[in-house]
Amino acid sequence: MPEYKPQYYPGSTLPSKNRRKYLDPEYKLQKLRTISDDDLVRIMGHRVPGEAYKSTHPPLEETGEPACPIREIVTPTPGAKAGDRIRYIQFTDSVYYAPVTPYVRAWMYHTRYRGVDVGVLSGRVPLEARERDLEKVAKELVETEIFDSARCGIRGATVHGHALRLDENGLMFDAYRRYLFNKKTGEVDYVKDQIGVPLDKPISVGKPIPETELRKRTSEFRIDGNAFRDDKELISWMQRIHMLRTIAGFDPEKVKGI
């Protein structure tokens, strides 16, 4: 039997390699900044720091569970066990060299985290999970290299901006101006939570990553950086998937050894 090693993603260029890296849970995401637990809770806006988690149903131990062989073996996450509400964090990633794209987010969330619900749109990625599980995940998402304070936004609604040009400070457009560039510190401060409710005090999410650095970390193909056209391996892989799906739709018996 041939030895199987997870490979995550095809492709030969830098964005493909970065995609592969981010999808691989063995790769530890590089920590670039520290956001306190309480500040993160404030930005997410689901509860006040220190407040107990609200629940959507009683703890599983109290309710008991129906007789189901899968429930018998699948361990619930801590949040599920406690009956936490399912809440969200949502990111918008600019087309201008944000570290990860929406689909890369979804793929890596599912290879790295357990019990998460992820959706993808062109400009935003909602991530939902039991509240205490969510906070744990969110911490890594904001503190590490996959977040940039200028080209990524934490936004619940009115996410418009991923495809817009950057402002004079290099920040991605946000109609609510949830975050502002602090000229004194050179950092980006959140002044509103993700849904747009003003915060009591600004919360810094750090300095924007220089573009040269972003270009190294990015998983985005761009004609002015790493052109998709140059990743012949990835293009050919995608053409292959399309071809096989097409032929299989006509007659699955025709797909043999190709």
Binding site: V95, P102, V120, F228, M238, H242
Partner: peptide
Amino acid sequence: YLSQLLHKEEMGRLGFY
């Protein structure tokens, strides 16, 4: 359809939900 699949892979994003 091939175009849509290529687009998703190129941009790592595509359309609405």
